[in-house]
Amino acid sequence: MSAPAEEKSSFVINGKSWSGAVHPLKRLLDTIREDVGLTGTKEGCGEGECGACTVFLDGQVVMSCMVPTCQAEGKQITTIEGLAENGRLHPMQESFAQEGGAQCGICTPGMIMAAVAYARDPGSAEDMREALAGNLCRCTGYIRIFEAVKKAMAK
């Protein structure tokens, strides 16, 4: 039981550069939550199944619990905290709030990230159901979420 072999790690998160000493195998999820201090990204399973930890890594949607921090080196990360611009909610956040897309809210940050990724590149999946299939929600039955995504995409 030795001390962790931390290394200097740096990346850009929500437009700001960040660097710190992090174990290279530390889950990006933990680095974001514990080292960067942004807790909007959630852990629902730690096994890549639930999507609560979804973030963008160089513009691609990933499960941050599946990414070792060493593989985020020098990259751009966006989390739920990085979606609003100049204090204005992202349209996806707005429509989730209006349409009842968030109930208990624990899946919501990851769900919104996956939805934003789909809205930006609708060709990335054959339809909305496929694009969000990596994000489990136990509260909504997904119906209000679909409404919210459709409404945001129509804007």
Binding site: T79, I80, A97, G105, T108
Partner: peptide, 10 residues
């Protein structure tokens, strides 16, 4: 909802 802003912004 009373708490939706906090939930959608993380």
């Amino acid at each position: 909802r009373k708490e939706s802003l906090e939930k959608v912004t993380g």
